[in-house]
């Protein structure tokens, strides 16, 4: 799901956000702070964290990232890289290097039994939320006038301007939505596993791999890519614990070698 946000940014703005992983961690920390200060359930914290992140996304885009857009890919890349370093060290300064985790109470261990398999509620919930989020993004993208505007800007920025679309505003909105989605991912991450200030780059890499495996600009493909990575990691972990992460990367490289356009390239229309 982190990948879905990433995919959206890639798709609309052709911008690569290296700090994306760190924004996931940022939302996890925000969630942690909200939970710690109000004592509410982590999932409820979404109500606060998602809009906050969306607002951060919008103003970040309007304030900084819009200035970097252009034909040259270097400026956005380097600026987000700088952001990434700043965020990581802000986490370090603010929350220390110790891994932290959000407590979701009984939800974490609860499980249901389906056909003899015991499935945790939390993974199921995560999966369910991922599908709902992607479905609504898909709907937003293809069935609403906002989505139409996003696609128009993504196709041809100049001409979209002629239609009265302010691309700066559109990019801001896209980034806002992307970070809102990121916030959901971040909270779920914070409930599921512990995280520390440097957890972001691993997230970024996996999100990116899922996007490439799934095919650029295809949100369902991104979900499938995420599943493939997850499966590869689980298999790798069975062979040898040290192989868990590596096998995910290897799966990615194999896909890249055989089908560089991704397993499910974008279908037009």
């Amino acid at each position: 799901m982190f990948a879905a946000g990433l995919s959206l940014i890639f798709g609309v703005m052709r911008l690569v956000n290296i700090a994306h992983g760190d924004f996931i961690v940022l939302s996890a920390y925000l969630g942690l702070t909200v939970v710690a200060s109000t004592g509410m359930h982590p999932l409820l914290a979404l109500i606060i964290v998602v809009p906050t992140m969306a607002a951060i996304g919008y103003f970040l885009q309007r304030g900084i990232l819009n200035q970097t857009l252009g034909d040259d890919i270097l400026p956005p890349l380097l600026v987000t890289f700088g952001l990434s370093v700043i965020l990581q060290n802000l986490f370090l300064a603010g929350y220390s290097a110790d891994p932290q985790k959000m407590d979701a109470g009984a939800l974490e261990t609860a499980s249901v039994s389906v056909a003899g398999l015991s499935l945790g509620i939390l993974p199921l919930l995560t999966f369910g939320i991922a599908i709902v989020v992607i479905a609504s993004l898909q709907y937003m993208f293809f069935c609403t006038s906002l989505g139409r505007a996003f696609r128009a800007v993504s196709d041809n920025q100049d001409i979209a301007q002629l239609m009265g679309l302010n691309k700066r505003h559109m990019f801001g909105l896209a980034m806002g939505i992307a970070l809102g989605v990121t916030a959901i991912a971040g909270i779920l991450l914070g409930i599921r596993t512990s995280f520390d200030p440097t957890a972001g780059s691993a997230r970024l890499i996996f999100g990116f791999e899922a996007v490439i495996i799934g095919g650029l600009g295809n949100l369902w493909g991104t979900l499938a890519g995420g599943i493939i990575l997850g499966v590869a990691q689980t298999i790798g972990a069975k062979i040898d614990p040290g192989w868990q992460l590596l096998s995910g990367h290897i799966a990615f490289l194999i896909v890249l070698a055989i089908r560089p356009q991704g397993l499910f390239p974008r279908v037009s229309g």
Binding site: L78, V79, G82, S84, V85, I86, Q88, L92, A93
Partner: peptide, 12 residues
């Protein structure tokens, strides 16, 4: 850590 934050800031 402040030093790295400053560095990132300067670069941006």
């Amino acid at each position: 850590t402040i030093y790295l934050i400053v560095l990132g800031f300067v670069a941006i």
